[in-house]
Amino acid sequence: MVTEDEATPDSRDGQSKNTIIMVTEGPSIPDPREWRVINAWSIALAGAILTLCWLVWYKPDPYRDILLFVPDGLIVTFKVTVLSICCAVPLGLITGLGRISRNRVINLVASTYVEVIRGIPLLVQIFYFYYAVASLLQLSPTQAAVISISFCYGAYMGEVFRAGILAISKGQTEAARSLGFNRFQTMFYVILPQAWRTILPPIGNECIAMLKDTALVSVVAMPDLMQRARSYANKSYLYFETYTVIALIYLIITLLLSKVVSIMESRLNYYDGKK
């Protein structure tokens, strides 16, 4: 779910001030202005890495064996995540533009898509695309997984794009139109570049949440990280040990990715400040 607080126009650059887009899924993005060595992010990352290393050293059997068993699934997880991001982000942008469109038909289609997709759990969507749609269109498990995740997160990202675009002062649009820009040029050359600073953190948050939700594709026999863990646990009956390692791997990956998003946000703010 995406929400935004009330914003007041900034008299210096015409952008909305104190605008925050909140996303209720995924880890929190580290504040790019916080450069303290010891903070919640560093404690969580160090704790996860040290715990995993200690388990492998203290009890190689089974922890080292589990760690050596799952890399193939990790590759599949990243593959599904990257493909889903490449599809979901453009779909979210189109949906966000449709949600603010003055054309009633386009607005209605985009709004209906958001309401329908957000009202159906992702797991149900995965089952639907795999067992119903895939049989009609001859889709592979990977294609069905990517399509279902992309459609689900495209709706959520559409709300992020909509909120970010609406956060920009109308004065920016009026100024661009007075310079002779048409609607397309105004949106892609003036509004979106300014909105991206607000949009980036929640979009990054959604991408990280997407990686975690790829664990759901294991229910359709996708050999992802979760499916590999399930296979090992079913053979060894070491459920606690297996899922402890998997939880630590997911935690380390999501923390690292959240830091990447934080660095990107910091660089974006730095270059905006130099303009």
Rank of each mutant, 00 (worst) to 15 (best):
E159P: 08
D61T: 04
M210C: 11
I165E: 09
S258A: 15
V219F: 07
G180Q: 04
L55E: 01
K17V: 04
Y130L: 08
P32G: 08
S169G: 15
I165P: 14
A7L: 11
Y131W: 10
S111C: 02
I252H: 01
S84G: 10
R64N: 06
A229R: 02
A7D: 05
N269E: 12
I117F: 09
S150F: 05
P202S: 03
A233P: 00
F181M: 14
T186V: 03
W41D: 11
L211S: 09
E241C: 03
L50E: 06
A247D: 08
A233K: 02
S84L: 08
P9I: 15
I38M: 13
W196T: 11
Y63Q: 03
G73E: 01
L268Q: 13
P223R: 05
I117S: 05
P32F: 02
L97F: 10
A144S: 14
L67V: 15
P30V: 01
I246D: 13
V114W: 00
R118L: 09
I249W: 01
V109Y: 06
A132Q: 08
G26D: 07
S150T: 10
P90L: 03
R230T: 13
A229Y: 03
R104F: 01
F129A: 13
L97R: 06
L200E: 01
F78G: 15
R118E: 05
V133G: 10
Y153T: 01
W35S: 14
D13Q: 05
K274S: 13
K170D: 13
G47F: 04
T24N: 08
V146L: 02
G273K: 04
V76A: 11
Y250A: 10
D5K: 13
P71Y: 02
T3K: 14
F69T: 10
L139R: 07
G171D: 10
V245Y: 03
L211R: 10
M222G: 10
L45D: 04
S178A: 13
I252V: 12
R228A: 14
E6T: 09
L268A: 04
E4P: 04
T254F: 00
